[in-house]
Simulated assay, not measured.
Amino acid sequence: MISKAKKAARSAAVALAAAGAFSMLMPAGNAYAIDHVECRGGEDFLKIWSHMNGQQSVDCYANRGRTSFGGWWVDRISTGNNDLIYYDANGDSVRINRWTDITFPNHPPKVKDIEIL
């Protein structure tokens, strides 16, 4: 008869081996946790003013990651304490450093994705 201690040790060893095998076989990916957050005064969020089809929008984002921006035309970006890359409809990517406030009065970019670094 197998003692309870041996049975528990064997179960723990099997679980540890399974976890190790799983982590070795699964590809390591980036965890994207970018969040669309409520814009609040005094916060250092990424803040983007944009428009599309007669609608205006002001959106704020926090945390590192990449998300779709839906092809909206961007009028202004305030990066706060975030380094940003935006990906436009032409396939270009543009990096904007933290603590930058930039406007696009004449030729606003049509942005497909944004990424906080």
Rank of each mutant, 00 (worst) to 15 (best):
residue 86 Y to V: 12
residue 7 K to Y: 00
residue 115 E to A: 12
residue 24 M to R: 07
residue 44 D to S: 14
residue 82 N to T: 04
residue 86 Y to P: 06
residue 59 D to K: 14
residue 31 A to E: 00
residue 44 D to L: 11
residue 33 A to N: 13
residue 4 K to Q: 09
residue 62 A to N: 12
residue 21 A to Q: 04
residue 72 W to G: 01
residue 14 V to R: 15
residue 106 N to A: 11
residue 36 H to A: 15
residue 93 S to H: 03
residue 96 I to F: 04
residue 23 S to D: 06
residue 18 A to V: 10
residue 100 T to Q: 08
residue 17 A to K: 07
residue 40 R to Y: 05
residue 56 Q to K: 13
residue 56 Q to R: 11
residue 7 K to T: 14
residue 29 G to K: 12
residue 114 I to H: 03
residue 70 G to L: 05
residue 43 E to V: 15
residue 48 I to F: 04
residue 26 M to E: 04
residue 89 A to V: 15
residue 5 A to Q: 05
residue 88 D to V: 15
residue 95 R to A: 11
residue 57 S to W: 06
residue 8 A to H: 10
residue 109 P to Q: 08
residue 75 D to P: 01
residue 101 D to E: 10
residue 33 A to K: 08
residue 1 M to P: 07
residue 90 N to C: 06
residue 78 S to A: 13
residue 105 P to M: 12
residue 92 D to E: 05
residue 110 K to V: 15
residue 18 A to Q: 09
residue 115 E to F: 00
residue 58 V to P: 00
residue 10 R to V: 12
residue 81 N to G: 14
residue 3 S to E: 04
residue 76 R to T: 03
residue 14 V to G: 03
residue 62 A to T: 14
residue 66 R to L: 11
residue 111 V to F: 08
residue 115 E to R: 13
residue 53 N to M: 11
residue 110 K to D: 05
residue 78 S to N: 09
residue 19 A to G: 12
residue 6 K to E: 08
residue 73 W to R: 11
residue 103 T to K: 11
residue 46 L to S: 02
residue 77 I to M: 05
residue 42 G to D: 03
residue 59 D to Y: 04
residue 42 G to S: 09
residue 1 M to K: 10
residue 87 Y to P: 00
residue 78 S to Y: 12
residue 82 N to Q: 13
residue 30 N to F: 14
residue 102 I to A: 08
residue 93 S to Q: 10
residue 12 A to G: 09
residue 112 K to Q: 02
residue 104 F to Y: 08
residue 85 I to F: 01
residue 26 M to N: 10
residue 11 S to G: 06
residue 112 K to W: 00
residue 111 V to R: 01
residue 19 A to V: 05
residue 15 A to H: 03
residue 115 E to N: 03
residue 10 R to M: 11
residue 77 I to K: 02
residue 41 G to E: 11
residue 15 A to T: 08
residue 77 I to H: 03
residue 4 K to E: 08
residue 4 K to C: 00
residue 52 M to K: 10
residue 71 G to Q: 07
residue 47 K to L: 07
residue 93 S to M: 07
residue 59 D to L: 14
residue 117 L to Y: 12
residue 11 S to K: 07
residue 65 G to H: 06
residue 47 K to F: 03
residue 38 E to G: 09
residue 1 M to H: 09
residue 40 R to F: 04
